[in-house]
Amino acid sequence: MTGQLPPDFDVDYQLTRLVRQVRARSLRNLATIHDDLDYSTFVLLLAIVDATTSSGGVRASDLADSLHVHKSTVSRAVRMLEDAGLVDRTPHPEDGRAHVLRASAEAVRRVDAYREDSHAALARVIEDWEPTELRTFAQLLARLNDAFGTE
């Protein structure tokens, strides 16, 4: 990028590059979780795994709301994840019309292994960064994420 562009454009450009690189790396490694997994379904699976480990599961409608996707998108992805043995759907204990999505133990194990490999790859990329650089970068990323959350 040239110095003639506005500073906010450089940030946007670099964030776009980063998102593309992270997505490409994720796509290359999705088969470690399941051969038929695509990126969108992967993102849903991560949310279901996180909900399973933190609160015992998640309703499909809540998942759609939190990820800002249509309920039909969640429904199709959940069907694939169920067929793959990665997600179970059980009746909601308080609302008989709804279901709770839970990641299987195998899905949790595979996602944990995927995350460990991903974190190790990131650690290799930033291994020569100073601790103060890492802290500052993490703080600025958190600040940016928080600002997007209020937009």
Score class of each variant (00 low, 15 high):
81 L>I: 07
75 S>F: 05
79 R>G: 08
61 S>R: 12
99 H>I: 00
107 A>T: 12
95 D>K: 15
54 S>R: 15
63 L>P: 02
53 T>D: 04
61 S>Y: 06
66 S>V: 04
104 S>A: 09
79 R>H: 06
60 A>Y: 03
101 L>E: 02
56 G>S: 07
64 A>D: 11
93 P>Q: 13
44 L>P: 03
77 A>H: 08
82 E>S: 04
75 S>R: 14
77 A>K: 03
102 R>V: 09
57 G>H: 03
68 H>C: 03
85 G>P: 13
70 H>C: 05
57 G>E: 09
57 G>I: 01
72 S>Q: 09
111 V>L: 05
68 H>F: 13
96 G>R: 15
51 A>G: 10
45 L>Y: 08
111 V>N: 07
92 H>G: 03
100 V>H: 06
48 I>C: 10
50 D>R: 11
106 E>K: 11
67 L>G: 03
41 T>M: 00
67 L>H: 10
102 R>D: 02
83 D>K: 14
96 G>Q: 15
77 A>F: 01
50 D>G: 11
71 K>Q: 13
88 D>Y: 13
89 R>W: 09
46 L>P: 04
91 P>N: 08
42 F>C: 05
108 V>P: 13
44 L>K: 13
108 V>L: 01
97 R>G: 07
99 H>R: 13
109 R>E: 15
44 L>R: 14
87 V>D: 02
78 V>M: 05
83 D>I: 01
102 R>M: 11
67 L>Q: 11
47 A>F: 05
